[in-house]
Write a protein that binds this DNA or RNA. Structure first.
Lengths: 360, 360
DNA sequence: TTGTATGCGTTATCAC
DNA sequence: GTGATAACGCATACAA
């Protein structure tokens, strides 16, 4: 490995000048800059990042904390994978490097994340699929290091989050169903202790109310975003004396499970019951009937996350991390990325035998 | 940030002793070790990784080169995402950190990967979804830095790869179909310029031959692993005067496309035609009928990759990277991870009407 | 068993 | 505009 001194020697200048020339500093003559550039490139000189980070006190690297333990217990989670890819792509566009952290055995300790971020001089940290009230997470946020939650509602002096606009997405689903003439609309919710679960449910109720429609208590069944819970929830709904004509499942997997249950009962989608999902993961377009759903713009989420994090990092550099530092301003407002309704084949007009005709 | 000197001062020893004590060196008394440990922990001391890497000349970090440009052009690719997760999990278990590289604008340059690996002192590099004959990739392999291809057939003095045992997997599919009585079996291949495409096709032919069965030329149709190509291929097969009674699609998406084509033709799966896929991605279990397929053990692939890479790194540390260094031995043999046949509902006994086109 | 001195490769400070 | 010189934070050879 050729180092900066070698380049200096071969260019007939000092290491300091080489550094200046290569880093585009103004205080160096164009002649020497060119000469240095040439010998550096001839020698294949590559500045060592560790050494640079050490002295510059910045690494151009952000970390990702992503708890994948759910893979073993519950199986894959497509949307999270999409989200990770979206983050990777956006980060690459911005020039940051991404370090996937392996807290390892120290996960339980309160300073696990703080420590690992400090040790690697990370300029910011993105978080996915972790419990926001974990002591290690709260300690990280309290440390003042720039943090961004992905679909994870964290807040702090230098922490914010991006997420799908779940309220808006749910309202799109409701509008679509109501527009098709449906009135008896049920919802299969996600877990009500995580943000997407809560917000999609809220959005559903709000928009139903906006249309002057009642949400019967027995039309609200909860699931856990995985397919089996959608199946089970739909069985519950089908057993009602007066089943719904449409179902809004707050996740695509649950929507697919619901469709299976409907088919197994000898009913047709969308002939008898319409189904709308949420997320637009890969399966949505592949099942038959293909699933009408609310898409999540995972590339947009990645971009929004990186932009927010960049701002937080900029503030961190400018004002420092001390308790006396002014808190973040604009960068602190969470960013909600809207999705779009993707109309496919799982939704249709309300059956004529039921309630209000679609076209009056 | 408290540094090693601070800890030394507060413990009444020299920085060297602190380093020795904290790194578990034998030549330090248990008494001082304990004392140093305590003050270090009290002060919340965290050794700086950049500084350590600089002086130890090892980073405990491996890089991942993963070309995600296909996301924009062709859409998501579930199996690659699974593979990435498998790698992450295995790496975490082994204590390595993972750095996702962003070659950025220099992607085209021949030394892009060599440079970035050197700059970040990466001990090894994993590669996914890149063209193995790209100059930048070949240069990286030639550099002697430990490399591991994921489903990517790379070889070199310190380079090897892991992949699914595609031959074996294909043979499982053939055995299954033959066992159900099928004789007229068609194949929808993947692209024949990448490894999984070639090997699954080869495995199919080999095992057909092992059963003494002929593979008609018109029963071999090629696709690109994406759903649309499976649909199109199946249309071609259905248009034959004598269509097959079973189809082996070399990827799950293509298998789903094929099932759609069959259904659209008014035929039944598996009543008229059986379909087997490959990969066992999420959709396989979710479509109806659920898809019989050959699973890929992505967690196993991740583990195998990390183990192989660890060995390559160990050899690299021991023998160095010079051209005179002895080449890797055991670690150099590619590791093929076997999958398993997952029997679901898309396969069944050959129809009694076999010999004539099955028209329901 | 412990301390001293040196170096890892770079950038920043301050002279000139 | 350029060159010494001193950090950055740590580990290690050598001396004690």
């Amino acid at each position: 490995m050729v180092d900066i001194r070698e380049v200096a020697r071969r260019s007939g200048v000092s290491p300091a000048t080489v550094s200046r020339a290569l880093n585009g500093r103004p205080d160096v003559s164009e002649a020497t800059r060119e000469r240095v550039r040439k010998t550096a490139s001839d020698l294949g000189y590559l500045p060592n990042e560790q050494a640079r980070t050490l002295v510059r006190r910045r690494s151009d690297t952000v970390g990702l904390i992503w708890d994948t333990s759910y893979v073993v217990t519950k199986g894959r989670h497509s949307f999270l994978q999409d989200l990770a890819v979206g983050l990777k792509i956006a980060l690459a566009e911005t020039g940051y490097h991404l370090m996937i952290l392996s807290p390892g055995s120290t996960t339980g300790s309160e300073d696990a994340f703080v420590r690992i971020a400090a040790q690697h001089s990370l300029e910011g940290v993105a978080l996915m699929a972790v419990e926001p009230h974990l002591p290690a997470v709260e300690a990280l946020i309290a440390s003042g290091r720039p943090c961004i939650g992905l679909d994870l509602p964290i807040r702090g002096r230098r922490a914010s989050y991006v997420g799908a606009d779940n309220h808006h997405g749910a309202s799109l689903a409701v509008d679509h169903l109501v527009g098709l003439g449906h009135r008896r609309i049920a919802v299969i919710t996600g877990p009500l202790d995580i943000l997407p679960g809560v917000e999609r449910h809220e959005g559903f109720r709000t928009q139903m109310a906006a249309h002057g429609l009642e949400v019967l208590p027995e039309y609200v069944v909860s699931g856990d975003f995985f397919i089996e819970s959608g199946h089970a929830a739909m069985l519950t709904l089908l057993a009602l004396p007066n089943p719904p004509t449409a179902v809004f499942a707050c996740g695509d997997q649950m929507a697919v499970g619901a469709m299976h249950a409907i088919n197994e009962a000898g009913l047709d989608v969308p002939g008898d019951i319409s189904v709308v999902g949420f997320d637009d993961v890969e399966i949505a377009a592949l099942v038959r009937p293909s699933l009408t759903t609310v898409s999540q713009d995972y590339l947009g989420l990645g971009r929004a996350a990186v932009e927010l994090l960049s701002n937080l990092i900029a503030e961190d550099r400018e004002f420092g991390r001390g308790a006396d530092a002014p808190p973040s301003t604009a960068a602190r407002r969470p960013e909600l990325v809207p999705g779009a309704l993707i109309v496919r084949d799982s939704t249709g007009p309300v059956p004529l035998t039921q309630g209000v005709p679609a076209i009056a």
